[in-house]
Design a protein around this nucleic acid. Structure first.
Lengths: 232, 232
DNA sequence: TTCCAATTAAGTGTATGCATTTTGTGAGGC
DNA sequence: GCCTCACAAAATGCATACACTTAATTGGAA
């Protein structure tokens, strides 16, 4: 069971997330997803909850919750045997996410145009101004990341569609994993920021069509951020 | 525990689902969702897991799993207090689902055109022929329902996008709830079946564009099945 | 009377234990 | 030699128990 030799790091629940407010189930959820997209767990691999619990040094209860969530999201398939296996194509998860975003977010932006409360718009502009292109790389990336998330999440929020909102926000939450790429060209950040500003402007002016196009352009030009460029 | 006085019906876990293979967590999941879309649980209502467990006569473990899944799907929001509340707009859940389907399924159909294995196509045609328009209403509806599910799920399956697949299949699973409307005009069933046949033909011929248009038409014309016609 | 604080009640999250199902293995028969 | 059946090992799901957090109520003081 837990007598395996090479999991000294995985037990470090506290340092892994950094955030102490997340539950153990959240930690397990992220850990499993990380292993899948990193290729440690290949597609078709059966997932034994007790083993994972032992490896991570937690009980089986939060592991079961995490697996249930991953099954609900489609990353894992649950056979009739009640055993969860990694779904085929799970390591291309990020690509799937981005393709779905291309299908959904333009419509969400169109629906949100003009519907974003003034207070939220103000906050978004504040965040956009915080993206100081002269700041040092670390601060810049941090500010851009925050603005990015706030903008897309606000669009999801104001789309008026509950499922749309939750899907988009979940897609955004996955970006946290993809943000491991250290070779983030400054130029791309600048361009992306410019596109975000265009979208924000369209939201403010209530121009649905422009919001939709700007969002589509933004998402299509961000495709190259992904490891594989296999987008429809 | 289940000593409360007024829940003689809710304890009937076996009869509620009819299917004995589903887990307790699945049962609780459906029960909560049913209460939300039926308006028993209104938006903003806090969801006390222990109360639900007592009402349903099950332990808190499967309830926690069901709540985790509903939170992941966006039907429930989890506050920082770790208390789950019904998300705003949850009673319009079916409308949200249909709107998202309109955004996703045409693209999925286009991606699936020509990619559906011959074996699966055969099975779909078998199911389509089982929809005998001369049969009695009950059998007809049953066959149409099966063909409907099989077709849409096959498209989801063959889209090559894992997230797309899981979202569409989840949307289809929600149709089970909506199938309570008894006043299902036969004419609509016939039209819907015709549209399905068109889609199937496009899939077989590998005509992406036609598949996409046919799917869009199908979904738009099915809008009126919904209780409220508030589709974008 | 009103406000603040402390104690009490309720609820959530996680760990553990038990019953059931499933899988893997080995012996026996064809 | 191969297949089948049976038994054992393991894993899953659910229930209960415990620790901790959060909300509520009651008490006292201003």
């Amino acid at each position: 069971m837990a007598s395996s030799a090479s999991e000294t790091d995985t037990e470090a629940q506290a340092e892994g997330t950094g955030d102490q407010s997340v539950s153990t189930a959240d930690f397990v959820y992220e850990e499993i997803l990380k292993r899948i997209v990193q290729g440690v767990l290949r597609e078709g691999s059966p997932l034994r909850g007790s083993t994972i619990a032992a490896e991570l040094g937690v009980s089986r209860t939060p592991v079961a919750q995490a697996i249930a969530r991953l099954v609900a999201e489609g990353v894992l398939n649950q056979e009739l045997n009640h055993r969860a296996i990694v779904a085929t194509g799970a390591e291309r998860w990020f690509i799937s996410v981005h393709e779905v975003r291309i299908l959904l977010e333009p419509a969400a932006a169109a629906a949100s145009a003009g519907s974003v409360p003034a207070e939220q718009l103000e906050k978004l502009e504040e965040l956009s101004e915080a993206v100081n292109l002269d700041a040092d790389s670390s601060q810049l990336r941090d500010a851009a990341f925050r603005f990015d998330h706030a903008l897309h999440n606000a669009i999801a929020e104001c789309s008026g569609n509950l499922l749309l909102k939750s899907i988009i926000q979940k897609c955004m939450s996955f970006k946290r994993f993809a943000y491991r790429v250290p070779n983030d060209p400054l130029e791309r950040l600048t361009r992306s920021h410019h596109e975000h500003l265009q979208i924000l402007k369209a939201l403010k002016h209530g121009d649905s069509e422009f919001a939709s196009s700007a969002m589509l352009l933004h998402l299509r030009s961000t495709v190259s951020e992904l490891p594989d460029h296999h987008v429809v």
